[in-house]
Design a protein around this nucleic acid. Structure first.
Length: 813
DNA sequence: AAGTACTATATCTAGACAGCATGTC
DNA sequence: CTAGATATAGTACTT
């Protein structure tokens, strides 16, 4: 289909596409247009990666914005509804994809279309999004916007759900499913476009969304799947070619070498971080001899940038590999590491990347060849190594072949035996991807979404909930509602016991004010219950031996604590500090542990030997924990200890321990530290709101713990570190020079400031400016030698060469 | 005595969304 | 209940 023949799109579009070299649509795209995607029809497109899915979505969104609101004949609100422009929402599963899509859609700004992004850490401020034509957001953010009743949501005319096969994900799938159902209920005219990888049962998605289906295997670049075994490559078309493996060489290295001789790059998927790092190190020595002098030079620059990101072992190892033209990529890497690697790989500077699945689902990083080296992965819940799903392997393989640059892509599995060769062909090369299946009927999902659904007014009774749930994928896939209803009733009960929901006599359901807060804060109700329990227990002064209540199961408050009919808001006012024998404020450690043991915080793994260490720590600091410690023999004890490990990591960070020491002590990567801190910040913010609402007078203590985590500083630096341009390191230097807070900085002697900042004039100027100093200029100011930081007194501590990278802030993304 | 080449044994295991209000060098 | 790559300790042997 020629681009001029697409109905419903803006007039400028055909020329714009031609300018991009697009003369006609790919077959699946044409099919989508024929199905009416540019005329407001719902569509499910189940097609391979890189087959032009995004263009289908773009066409739908542009057409929808152009078409605007249909003036419905039975429009109750009267006039103005007609003639308004349409508004499109593009839902992505990852933040990184949100910014990638935004950049892609910004090409239409020249035609007067405005694009906005909304994710947890990057929000185009409040009402700002209302004026945008296209909004890109993560599914959780959209859910949150629905819960907080964002006014522009009912103006939507088109919603696109990218990677919609993720409704199959046990953790995050239900959110996407429920969010789509809510958007569609909110706006019955909403056009729904769902983009999926190729899956077994795409028609189930189409059924659910009342959508036409485009289900195709077509790719713009041929993908040859195959298996390497022995000295040969066996491809799916039956062909075999020689690919010799030298003695003492691993097959992966041989394949990389072979690709290199053809000037191609290779993406290697492995099953653990450690494997990724080890492979990158080894492959660097394979690649290194093939590099040109210019490449070596450029790679050295990238390596320097990588070292600047963070001063950790991971960072060094990565930089070393990059110098040899190889790299690893996994979630322990800082985000800056990841994007540096992705960019250099896309620029064909880095020749091999060994990656965990981060790269399979993330931003677009195509490669000439893909090697799926490990096809089994450890899964603790299944008790050992489990084969990857066909869907996942196909997603990885789909990264092979760069549009417009490679004649074809090749994706290879590795076999060690003839039997394995056959098995891999059977299991992956020739196999159809699995069916996807709603995971909504699981406790954690229903716990959260029942509360949110009631709190934001989508249902106000058990029957109403059932009616709402009818609109989900789960209902369309399961004729039998028995399991769903049973779990639903359990969860209503749970929410009622924890004072988030109230059941009326007539069977109606309402959210309490606490319930509303929990829903808006986007907390798992179980996390909220754990936090509330902990805060109340601290206030009561319980938690010591003897009063071993069942706090470990996060049940409701003790019935004898509050009079019946108690609501949280009612005791906002009382509760000043005038109680006798007032308990001191909880420590940061206590609060970090509280949030670390909620289900919203991902656990750190306890290594052998850790158990003993943290058990000792638990007893040493017993006084500090909120709520009672489970007994040593309680199965919950291990989780409690692992939360303690997380809590101590946070405490270290908030005590100005260096990042490299933290990564070393807990055996994690810089990306993990940043992730933990970020999650803790969010949960402590939520805990602060809850503490305020409970009126226990604990909010200031929570706030302080949060601010310390945010800046990574001790208590005395929280004010200084709040100044823009001042991170944990500079705040400490200024403090040591006698400048203790923002006010002191404002009136400080400039030579002292300059001295404390090790003579960096421009830095000192910016800092003073941000602090509101009358005259920040550093002209003619001599650094005060006495203010120069030299903690240890060792002479080389003063002449550290690492000028620029001493801030290691976590505010990045 | 220290290095090397090898083997037996122990260890460890992917990912990443969210509040709120703004900004690290 | 299931595995497998890698780190580490241990061993025999060389230089």
């Amino acid at each position: 289909m020629d681009v001029a023949d697409i109905p419903g799109v803006p007039d400028w579009l055909p020329d714009h596409l031609r300018a991009d070299g697009i003369e006609s649509l790919y077959p699946p795209q044409a099919e989508a247009v024929e199905a009416g995607v540019t005329e407001g029809e719902n569509l499910v497109a189940s097609v391979p990666t890189a087959s032009g899915k995004t263009l289908v979505a773009t066409l739908a969104m542009l057409a929808s914005v152009e078409r605007g609101t249909r003036s419905a004949p039975d429009d109750e609100s009267g006039e103005a509804a007609s003639g308004r422009r349409g508004k499109a929402l593009y839902i992505v599963p990852l933040r990184a994809l949100a910014s990638e899509k935004r950049e892609e859609f910004e090409q239409f700004e020249q035609y007067g279309l405005e694009v906005g992004v909304s994710t947890g850490n990057y929000e185009s401020e409040g009402g700002w999004l209302a004026t945008k034509d296209i909004v890109v957001a993560t599914s959780e953010k959209v859910d949150s916007l629905v819960r907080n009743d964002a006014p522009w949501l009912d103006e939507l005319t088109c919603v696109v759900s990218d990677e919609v096969h993720l409704v199959d994900d046990p953790n995050r799938g239900p959110t996407l499913e429920v969010t789509l159902a809510k958007l569609r209920q909110l706006n019955p005219d909403l056009q729904t476009v769902a983009l999926s990888a190729t899956i077994g049962n795409a028609e189930a998605l189409a059924d659910w969304l009342d959508a036409a289906l485009v289900d195709s295997d077509w790719r713009p670049i041929e993908l040859k799947k195959g298996v390497h075994y022995g000295q040969a490559l066996h491809l799916e078309d039956g062909s075999q070619s020689e690919l010799p493996v030298r003695n003492s060489e691993k097959p992966t290295a041989a394949i990389v070498r072979d690709t290199l001789e053809d000037e191609g790059s290779t993406l290697v998927f492995v099953n653990s971080r450690r494997n990724a790092e080890a492979a990158a190190g080894r492959l660097a020595s394979t690649v290194e001899p093939h590099l040109t002098p210019e490449e070596r030079e450029q790679l050295a620059e990238v390596a320097d940038e990588i070292r600047d990101v963070s001063d950790t072992e991971t960072s060094d190892d990565l930089a070393d590999a990059v110098e040899g033209g190889a790299a690893f990529h996994h979630a322990g890497c800082a985000n800056d590491h990841r994007s540096l690697v992705e960019d250099a790989f896309r620029d064909r500077l880095i020749k091999v990347v060994s990656a965990t699945p981060t790269l399979a689902a993330g931003v677009n990083t195509p490669s000439r060849r893909v090697v799926v080296r490990d096809w089994r992965r450890y899964d603790g819940t299944a008790g050992g190594m489990q084969p990857l799903s066909v869907l996942e392997v196909h997603q990885m393989m789909g990264r092979a072949g760069r549009p417009g640059r490679d004649p074809y892509g090749e994706a290879l599995l590795l076999a060690n035996s003839h039997d394995e060769l056959d098995e891999l062909f059977e299991r992956y090369v020739w196999a159809e991807p699995e069916d996807i299946e709603s995971k909504l009927a699981a406790e954690p999902a229903l716990r959260t979404h029942i509360l949110a659904t009631v709190a934001s007014g989508f249902a106000n009774s058990r029957e109403g909930l059932l009616e709402f749930l009818e609109q989900t994928l789960h209902a369309s896939q399961n004729a039998d509602r028995v399991q769903l209803e049973r779990v639903m009733d359990d969860m209503i009960e749970y929410l009622e016991v924890n004072e988030f929901l109230e059941r009326e006599d007539d069977g109606g359901l309402t959210a309490t004010s606490l319930g509303h807060t929990v829903s808006r804060l986007y907390l798992d109700p179980m996390s909220a219950a754990e936090i509330i329990d902990g805060l109340r227990a601290w206030k009561r002064g319980t938690g010591r031996a003897g009063t071993t209540t069942d706090a470990s199961t996060a049940e409701g408050p003790d019935p004898d604590e509050e009079p019946p009919g108690f609501t949280a808001a009612s005791d906002l006012a009382d509760d000043a500090d005038d109680e006798e024998a007032e308990r001191p404020d909880p420590t940061a450690m206590g609060l970090y542990h509280l949030v670390a043991r909620t289900p919203d915080m991902y656990e750190l793994y306890l290594r052998s030997g850790d158990e003993e260490e943290y058990q000792m720590l638990a007893f040493e600091r017993e006084e500090e924990f909120l709520g009672s410690m489970p007994s040593e023999f309680d199965p919950a004890f291990e989780d409690w200890l692992s939360a303690l490990k997380t809590a101590r990591l946070l405490e270290d960070w908030a005590s100005e321990v260096d990042e490299d020491e933290i990564t070393d002590r807990y055996d994690v990567g810089p990306g993990d530290v940043r992730g933990k801190v970020e999650t803790a910040q969010w949960l402590l913010g939520a805990a602060e709101s809850l503490a305020g609402e409970l009126g226990l007078g604990l909010a200031p203590a929570v706030r302080e713990a949060r601010v310390r985590a945010e800046h990574g500083v001790r208590e005395e630096l929280t004010d200084l570190a709040g100044v823009r341009g001042v991170g944990r390191k500079r705040a400490r230097r200024l403090y040591q020079a006698g400048i203790e807070d923002r006010a002191a900085l404002r009136d400080a002697d400039k030579s002292v400031v300059l001295g404390a900042l090790r003579g960096r004039e421009r830095t000192a100027e910016t800092v003073l400016e941000n602090a509101g100093h009358r005259d920040p200029s550093m002209d003619d100011v001599e650094p005060d030698a006495a203010a120069r930081p030299d903690e240890t007194g060792s002479p080389d501590a003063v002449t550290e060469p690492d000028d620029e990278e001493d801030q290691s802030s976590l505010g990045d993304f």
